[in-house]
Design a protein around this nucleic acid. Structure first.
Length: 582
DNA sequence: CTAGGGTTAG
């Protein structure tokens, strides 16, 4: 940890002593000016936010509070010292904010990097002079902060204002389209890229391949990859991970072997892609082979993520002891993700002792995994407790992501939130949904009402399932598109078991191909089955199993009592265990 | 001063 330079300390006290010796606003000399800048720079290297504050006070007292160059200097210093709130306040409280071009650009990117999109935008819109870098920082920052549609709007504004986008702009916008999974947008942006005659570099190539893969067009991604002959690892990585999320493990492995033939060195992301491919297809032995290979042949140390995938591969195959052995062999401390992967496997294969170990570790790592606990209580029919838990989550500022799906029709993205019936065409959507459900039931669909984690009647539970966001999106798609055309839906979370089985039946009933992009992979529903081979669908009843395990562990640890999670009137926690055996 | 590819669970 660097400390504030001795001279800087002296400068500071010198400046402060002048406040008392000469009347203000005494003429500030150019030397003061330079001195203040040096002091700020030194604060930055020392990461001494207190000293920044002192200097700030001094600057204001000296009457430099409105000096743009000093204020922007100070702002950047605040950001770099991690005092984002001060930076934002300074921005708010300085009227007629004007930053020069480069300082403004730096501020935009710093604010964006720290997740403060609004502050970045304020800087941008107050800049009297903007260049392509300003726009790029703005657009790229929005994409990185998951505000993709806003980024696309800004991109359009930029073009309308006659600012020519460059390769930086395109790489951000392409990444944005990849996140959205919106094919029409993807095609539009790719055409624009060709039109503007922007040369493809490796970054753009990997972004484009990734975009097509994530928009469900793995064939186009392959075509571009085959045509480009790039020797950049990133481009190969995009292809491999693209194939992996489409469940095309053999293709991914083939690409990897070609990579070896061409003497292109894989990196840790390459192996992660290969391992994900193996995990999605249940290829245990191959997964183990590549996991060993990365260290032995390429001297790449497995990272947390590689271990996580490996535990997942073994766990899903029911090889729980090996999964646990992998965790114990790790060179670093396993994280919550890894233990959750193991817990999930224990749930599927009903291995209570290991499950307990997993839960213990999850609890000790994660000062209370609210989502897990909440859902568990729900499945134990302890609704009041679960409601309280959600309250607590709110208080603590922890929130579970809401299920969201979106569908792109004629270039327009329509959003659906789970349970939200506010859509203007809800009546028509609901009508078609009812019909589809009725027909699906004749085709063997049984609503998985035990998945609904709420204290309501069976009928209401069925109603709740109907409003899962992906079902709404599908009904809307059926409503708005011509028969037999492909329907493409993107979702922010994993699809649930109920939606998955319903989609399969609908695909057969309507003879349509439905492609759903999950948080982790693609599902292509066709003629009653899914490309994922149902590998991902959890068994709903196993909730109860985890719940029982969780409770017993929590009791043993006296965890619940210490966290004050027990709600008066709920009865003794042990009652919740009654009748539950595992 | 600005760009791409990345584990798991809900």
């Amino acid at each position: 940890m660097p400390t504030l330079h001795q001279n800087t300390r002296m400068c500071l006290s010198l400046l402060f002593s002048r406040r008392f010796s000469s009347p203000l606003p005494a003429a500030a000399t150019a030397t003061d000016f330079q001195m203040l800048k040096c002091v700020l720079d030194d604060c930055k290297t020392a990461l001494d936010s207190k000293a920044v504050l002192e200097t700030h006070v001094k600057i204001v007292k000296l009457g430099f509070g409105m000096d743009y160059s000093l204020v922007s200097h100070m702002l950047l210093t605040y950001i770099d010292c991690g005092k984002l709130d001060f930076a934002r306040r300074l921005l708010d409280e300085t009227p007629c904010w004007n930053a020069d071009l480069i300082t403004g650009n730096i501020m935009i990117s710093r604010f964006m990097k720290n997740g403060d999109v609004e502050a970045a935008k304020r800087v941008f819109f107050n800049m009297p002079l903007k260049d392509v870098v300003s726009w790029n920082s703005l657009i790229g920052g929005c994409v990185k902060n998951s505000r993709v549609e806003e980024a696309l709007r800004m991109f359009k504004d930029m073009c309308l204002l006659g600012v020519e986008p460059d390769e930086f702009t395109f790489s951000s916008v392409i990444a944005g389209c990849a996140r959205l999974g919106a094919l029409d947008h993807a095609l539009w942006i790719h055409n624009l890229l060709i039109e503007k005659e922007i040369a493809l570099n490796d970054i753009l190539l990997s972004a484009i391949i990734d975009m097509y893969a994530k928009c469900g067009k793995i064939e186009i991604a392959k075509e571009i990859f085959d045509g480009c002959k790039s020797s950049s690892v990133s481009v190969w990585n995009s292809m491999i991970t693209g194939l992996a999320v489409h469940g095309l493990a053999t293709d991914a492995i083939y690409v990897f072997s070609r990579m070896e033939e061409e003497n292109i060195f894989p990196d840790s992301i390459t192996f992660l892609g290969i391992l994900v491919a193996c995990s999605h297809c249940g290829l245990v032995e191959l997964g183990k082979k590549y996991f060993d290979m990365m260290n032995r042949k390429y001297s790449i140390e497995p990272e947390l993520e590689h271990y996580g995938t490996m535990v997942d591969i073994l766990g899903r195959a029911g090889r729980l002891d090996e999964a646990y052995a992998t965790i114990r062999a790790m060179s670093m401390k396993p994280d919550v993700v890894i233990w959750k992967a193991l817990l999930s496997a224990c749930r599927t294969y009903r291995n209570a002792p290991l499950g307990e170990i997993a839960i213990r570790n999850i609890s000790s790592l994660d000062g209370g995994d609210y989502v897990l606990l909440s859902n568990t209580y729900c499945s134990l029919n302890k609704w009041s407790s679960s409601a309280n838990m959600r309250e607590e989550m709110k208080r603590e500022g922890i929130h579970k992501d809401h299920g969201k799906s979106w569908i792109e029709l004629a270039g327009i993205i329509h959003h659906f939130k789970a349970g939200n019936q506010a859509h203007p065409e809800m009546e028509a959507i609901y009508k078609i949904m009812k019909q589809l459900i009725k027909r699906a039931k004749l085709g063997g669909y049984v609503p998985a009402t035990d998945l609904v984690l709420m204290d309501v009647s069976e009928e209401e539970k069925e109603e709740n399932l109907i409003f899962h966001s992906e079902k709404l999106a599908l009904a809307f798609g059926v409503l708005k598109t011509s028969p037999r055309t492909e329907i493409r839906i993107t979702k922010n979370l994993r699809t649930c078991y109920d939606c998955h089985s319903w989609f399969k039946i609908v695909s057969r009933m309507l003879a349509r191909v439905i492609i759903v992009r999950d948080r982790v992979r693609f599902h292509k529903f066709e003629a009653g089955s899914c490309s994922c081979g149902d590998y991902w669908c959890c068994i709903s009843q196993s909730y109860i199993f985890t719940a029982a395990m969780l409770l017993s562990v929590l009791l043993k640890m006296n965890y619940a009592a210490s966290k004050n999670l027990w709600i008066p009137g709920l009865g003794h926690p042990l009652d919740a265990m009654a009748g539950l055996k595992y």
